[in-house]
Computed example of a mutant assay.
Amino acid sequence: MTVCYFGIYDPVFGRNRVYRKGLTENGHAVLDCLDRSRGITKFWRLWRKHRALPPYDVMVVGYPGHLIVPFAKLIARGPVVADLLGSLEDAETLSHGAGFWRRVKSALIDRLAVYFADIVLLESEAQESFFENKFGSSGKYRVLYTGADDSVFRCDSERIEERFVVLFRGRLTPESGILHVLEAARLLKNDPLITFRIVGAGPLLSRARETITKANLMNVELITERLSEERLRALMCEAALSLGQLSDNPRLSRTIPHKAFESFALGIPYLSGDTPAIREAVRDGETGFLVPSVSPEALAKKIQELRANPALLRRVGEAANTEFTSRFSPGALADALLSMLRKN
């Protein structure tokens, strides 16, 4: 099958990278038709680039691409698959604090994208239910998990077990639960074997630094600089436990963060707030661990329990890695995508 990957997407964004890699590795041709120019110039350039393409079987509008879906449908030579992941309006409202007119604009873009697409790819079954309630049950929705690039997220050597490193990676935002993580670190500050490694920056960086200083959290490493893939992988591979999202933002009930799949790929046990979406990937006590989303006390208790049970951690890490290979690897996800296309 030949796939035209079309739009204004970010080629290194997880979903685009994983799906394109999987399709190519499975022997399918991927034709990139990409332009990220500002303003309306991108439409003209995309039209010209598309005209020069050889025949293809299906067009996939990469993420982000909500805005470009109607244009893609206008010029496509085959079915249009829109990889929306989730709702633009939902993200603008619950994560970005957008004003009224920006929310109205994003709501219109959402509706047009759903209307013009032949198939809509979403990140979770929880997102699918959300879309059915918001936009109607059109039969277009398909769940395709994000996965991770296993050529990047791999551990080449055994973890040294001198320290119990608890990793939190991601933007320091209210919805990430970073302040709950720091409170758990405060509760465990007297345990000399547990180290919290926080890799990221964002709106709550100054508050995080203030909290670390005031509470004298010597058990917290804060790394804020942008890291190469190699350095990030090395830091992640030293971790005994990887933390997920730990707040009660309603949007988290239907999202699965990239770091969940990356942790699976690395064989690092993943500990997350308990939400409907994350339960699609994590079986508590088998392929990961779940705690109440807004409870530093429960988080601290679970970390202590897991530090005292290295055999369980090893077993869960191995099971998570096996689950990654069968469900979340580039090859597995490319197969799932092609199966959806053949059934359409």
Score class of each variant (00 low, 15 high):
S137D: 15
S137K: 15
S138R: 15
S138W: 12
K140H: 12
K140P: 02
R142M: 09
Y145I: 01
A148Y: 11
D149R: 00
D149Q: 04
D150S: 10
F153Y: 15
F153P: 00
R154W: 07
R154F: 13
R154E: 09
C155Q: 01
E158D: 11
R159W: 01
R159T: 00
E161T: 06
E161V: 04
E161H: 08
E162G: 07
E162M: 02
R163Q: 11
V165H: 01
V165M: 01
L167M: 14
L167V: 08
F168Q: 02
R169M: 13
T173L: 11
T173D: 10
P174K: 07
E175D: 13
S176Y: 09
I178F: 10
L179P: 02
L179W: 07
E183G: 02
A185T: 06
A185R: 03
A185Q: 06
R186S: 14
L187T: 04
D191H: 10
P192A: 14
I194K: 02
F196I: 02
R197M: 10
R197Q: 12
I198H: 02
V199G: 03
G202I: 04
P203C: 06
L204D: 05
R207A: 11
A208P: 01
A208W: 04
A208H: 01
E210Q: 11
T211V: 15
T213D: 15
K214V: 14
K214W: 09
A215H: 12
L217T: 01
L217G: 02
N219M: 07
N219S: 04
V220W: 04
V220Y: 06
E221I: 08
I223P: 00
T224C: 07
R226G: 05
R226C: 05
R226L: 11
L227K: 05
S228G: 13
R231Y: 05
L232G: 03
R233D: 04
A234D: 13
C237Y: 08
C237R: 04
E238F: 01
E238D: 12
A239S: 11
A240E: 03
L241G: 01
L241H: 06
S242I: 02
L243V: 10
L243C: 11
G244C: 05
G244Q: 03
G244T: 04
L246K: 08
S247V: 07
S247G: 09
S247L: 09
N249L: 10
N249M: 11
P250L: 12
R251D: 05
R251H: 15
S253D: 15
S253K: 15
R254W: 14
T255W: 05
T255V: 15
P257Q: 09
H258I: 12
A260H: 05
F261A: 11
S263L: 09
F264Y: 15
F264I: 09
